[in-house]
Amino acid sequence: MLPATLTPRALGRALLARQLLTERARMTALDAVEHLVGLQAQAPRPPYFGLWSRLADFRAEELSALLLDRSAVRVSVMRGTVHLLSARDCVQLAPLTRPLYERAVRSRWRAELAGTDPQEIADAGLPLVRESPRPAAELGTLLQERWPGRDPRMLSQVVRHLAPVVQIPPRGVWGRAGAPVYAAAETWLGRPMAKEPCVETVLLRYLRAFGPASVMDAQQWSGLTRLGEVMERLRPQLRVFTDGSGRELFDVPEAPRPDPELPVPPRFVAEYDNLVLAHADRTRLIDERDRAHLASRNGQVPGTVLLDGAVCGTWQTGESRGAATLTVTPFRWLSDAEERELAEEGERLLAFATGSPGSSGSTGAPGTSGTGVTRTVSFTAPPRT
């Protein structure tokens, strides 16, 4: 029997259900972080917005507490990017994704490292961050004493690429500022890195959170290569579908695959959210013509707006002199009803963004926050195509 074919809309509904975006879930922040296999976190605030859009009554202080008590941590893993992970996932995913960083070091600093073993630099840097957490600049300066003439920024980055290190608070804590400070992962977390992380387990978790998906999708999400071999080992326990191009899509049997016509509420998806980054083929969520609106030269990924389960625009917030604004830039002209729906959800987002650290954004009179900040949601004209 030939595998069933799934339309982009069916794939989109499956993805949104697994991403907790068809309705807000009632689970702890830690459970959500683990279910999602982490949240991309180059900037400190996006993981908070990512959980706010997915969890009922989410409060920022819940996630901050996880960072402060070391149940969660900021660390570079999939795709060579910073993610917010549970401590349990950190010790598995950091060793598993290390080959990405080994390749990056070899390609980026080949000339600068000529005659020097980058692993030797990493091995020299690890005791320094075990001794005391250090900012990147301080770490580079100390390493330069051993490698005079080398760029201290490069030396620091080699350690951060090849040694098991994590970013520690106050970086990532809601309402607090601070440049990244690095500590040895095993010292900070009080547990060792996995010596033989299981790629099969991670791939199954990816499918539960992002499937159905192709091998190329899984490789796009993780940055790892040769996952076709892993998928073949898993094939007997998976369901297999195809997309409109005949490409094989793999899935765990028990994962939700809702009706393609399932109603989906409007959502504001965080900057850098894996929802829009975790597939090679993203037509399940966004029209290929609209992907150009998300591209930027410096690698930034804007917050995105979902209507009827599809990306239809971008959003950004701003605060100045007691006023908070949410600006929505749609990719197409919106109906009055669509603008009203987005404005209502936008009010709730601004209430969360401008509230106290513990605010869920679920209360407060329209247009004002508990801190007396005026809130405004505005819409710009669609960009020219």
Rank of each mutant, 00 (worst) to 15 (best):
D151F: 01
L11V: 14
Q300L: 01
P383Y: 08
V91F: 07
P164C: 14
A163P: 05
S335G: 01
V129F: 08
K195V: 09
L93H: 15
A122W: 02
R257Y: 06
D89P: 01
G178K: 03
R289T: 14
P260V: 15
P263G: 08
A310Y: 10
F49G: 07
R176P: 10
R384K: 05
V105W: 00
T201A: 07
T81A: 04
A295E: 10
E344D: 11
R289M: 12
T376I: 14
A43H: 05
D217Y: 11
P302H: 03
E112V: 11
T329G: 11
C312V: 10
Q316R: 09
Q157S: 04
L204C: 05
S360G: 11
V264M: 15
G303K: 06
Q92S: 13
L63F: 15
R375V: 05
D251N: 14
P44K: 13
P164E: 08
T242H: 13
L277V: 05
R106T: 12
L84V: 02
E186S: 09
T97L: 07
L2I: 08
Y101K: 06
P253H: 11
G175H: 06
P8L: 12
R146T: 15
G309V: 03
R284A: 02
V264I: 11
A278N: 03
R74V: 06
L113V: 08
Q237A: 12
L63W: 14
A87F: 03
T376Q: 10
R332W: 13
E229R: 03
W188T: 01
A185Y: 06
R59M: 05
A41I: 00
P118A: 00
V269A: 13
P212C: 00
V305G: 04
L189V: 09
A255R: 09
T376M: 07
V230E: 08
D57W: 09
P148V: 14
P256Q: 10
V202H: 02
Q119E: 12
E112N: 07
R321P: 03
M1D: 15
L238G: 05
A337P: 00
V252G: 10
V91S: 02
A270K: 03
S356Q: 11
R153V: 07
A280D: 12
Q167S: 05
L100W: 12
F250Y: 07
R70A: 07
S156I: 14
P133T: 07
F352K: 08
V37S: 13
V166R: 08
A124K: 09
R108W: 05
P192M: 09
V37P: 13
L84C: 02
Q219E: 03
A41Q: 00
P212V: 01
V73P: 03
D89K: 02
F352P: 01
R13I: 04
L224E: 02
G149A: 04
A381D: 10
